[in-house]
Design a protein around this nucleic acid. Structure first.
Length: 270
DNA sequence: ACTATTTCCTGGATGC
DNA sequence: TGCATCCAGGAAATAG
């Protein structure tokens, strides 16, 4: 499930491989497409455009487009991978995977394919994309703390709220809360200044380390090269229900908060 | 204005 | 072995 580190890994890989390439033609699958913009709108916006750069914003992948001749037309192609979406660069003769929803033929002779079995992913075209929430790696400690002021919702839910913070998903929320020693059900507003400073620190540390390791490969996640990430071996609570806490040996608990599974150590987290 | 719950979707795991 | 059921979860929609 691509969260910030996975999306960052994918965007960096794509930028390295296809920045500067030009979109020759576009194929969009039939039936209910996972499109936010209409198919014709997307096709028109991509046709004959140069991919100037590929980058990440929150959990979104942003393709900066340029008209191939004059460098106008600054539209952006936005891809959200949802749970199971992937973007693959391959040759045209590579077998087309089931659940392939979009294929861009590139002037270099390669193809960029969007594959998403569960169809939670979304494609759209927009003039200037701006993720609603703050980037956890860029926001200041004070502004980070201010996000949670007065919020009665559990800190876990607040971390997942993309309007507040962009890019944090279930894995990294659980891992950051464990490292900060904070229980996921704590009301966001009840966290002290120290709690929040610690939480921001651990969140940044976890995200950076995960980026360094290429993300967490669970449920088939691979980057645009087909390579797996390695942060999953660093998970201390996520997916470890019943297993001993790596710090104190207490069995890790799993509870459901707002429909999301949440893992924590009842002794280390208060 | 907030917060909580439901819905979308498919493949893999589980149970009988 | 086969079939039904459950579960995973990001974010939008809906309900409270």
């Amino acid at each position: 499930m691509p969260e910030l580190p996975e999306v960052e890994t994918i965007a960096r890989g794509l930028n390295q491989r296809i920045a500067g390439d030009v979109i020759e033609s576009i194929w969009l699958g039939s039936k209910p497409e996972p499109l936010k913009s209409s198919a014709s709108e997307i096709a028109a916006a991509l046709q004959a455009r140069k991919i100037a750069a590929v980058r990440r914003s929150g959990k979104h992948i942003v393709f900066d487009l340029e008209s191939a001749e004059n460098k106008t037309s600054n539209a952006q192609w936005i891809v959200h991978l949802g749970m199971t979406g992937s973007l693959l660069v391959c040759t045209p003769d590579a077998g087309r995977e089931k659940h392939t929803h979009a294929v861009l033929q590139l002037v270099s002779g390669r193809e960029l394919r969007f594959v998403d079995p569960r169809r939670f992913g979304r494609l759209s075209v927009i003039e200037k994309f701006a993720a609603p929430g703050a980037e956890p790696l860029e926001i200041s400690s004070e502004n980070f703390a201010a996000l949670f002021r007065g919020r009665k919702t559990p800190i876990k839910s607040a971390l997942l709220n993309q309007r507040l913070l962009s890019g944090v998903g279930n894995i990294y929320a659980d891992e950051a809360l464990f490292r900060a020693g904070i229980r996921p059900r704590r009301r966001a507003a009840s966290l002290t200044r120290d709690d929040l400073r610690k939480l921001h620190q651990t969140l940044k540390r976890v995200l950076k380390e995960a980026i360094r390791l290429g993300g967490s490969s669970i449920s088939n996640y691979v980057d645009s090269n087909g390579d797996e990430g390695y942060f999953q071996i660093k998970h201390r609570v996520y997916g470890r229900e019943g297993k001993p806490c790596l710090v104190c040996k207490t069995p890790i608990k799993r509870i459901v908060i707002a429909g999301r599974s949440s893992h924590y150590c009842p002794k280390c987290q208060r």
